[in-house]
Amino acid sequence: MSSKNDAKGKAANTRTVRFNIKRCDGPGQPSRWERFDVPVQSSSAGSGSANVISCLQWIAANPVTIEGRKTTPVSFDCGCLEEVCGACTMVINGQVRQSCSCLMDSCAPNDGDEVTLEPMSKFPVNRDLFVDRSRLFNDLERIRGWVPIDGTYDLGAGPRETPEQQQQRYKLSECMSCGCCLEACPQYTLEPDEKEWDHAFVGAAVISQTRYFNMHATGKELAKQRLDVMSGPGGVSDCGNAQNCVKVCPKEIPLTESIGSVGRQTTIHKIREFFMGR
């Protein structure tokens, strides 16, 4: 983020990366493209590689397009910058991913390389690259994504668990609600109308969280209600088995296994309901 380079021209070991950014001033506003040339330092011992975030920070400090026109800093969402918070998901060169772990060394290694940034298309845009993922959190509420404990007072330890089960649950629990799997899913579509959320497809992340909570000895207590949601409109049967989700998950969560597991649980749940009544 140094302005020294600008004054002296391109310093040694600095290259220029061109960013094409899809911008939008607010909900319902038309989108447009703006281009920025960002100086990127080659990573050397002790400095670390530039990433999409550090480039967006540079643009925020120097919001001038390649035509030399002053513009506003690009709005974007980010948090931890180490791929555990899930905030900074974007579509980068056509691929949905976390922008913090998109390093310039691998994504734009040469002078003049281009990087295209777009907001996710499955969520309403707040502004520029900053989208509204409330629906995802709404869906976690829909499936009762919690363990129904008796309260926070001291009631002793939780259930024992084998290391195998812990490792399986841990993997599922790493889901950071980033939305990559939803962006990549052909069945998950943009739904800006909140009133429709309770019928719309929940997508892989929430199906996997259903499996996660149903695996826990106390979490199971709500399994029936969760499977009611999963067997209803927008539930697991809406999955078209494209299997894009598992390919884009930054945490490598076995999402298709989760979909299979919840599918089976739902089938058994429906059969049981059919024979036993509600």
Partner: peptide, 22 residues
Amino acid sequence: PKIIDLLDRMGVPFNRTAEGMR
């Protein structure tokens, strides 16, 4: 120790020993 127990009840996937202890 009581806080750990509570988190355990909430379902935190704490690493386990072979015997299933934290």
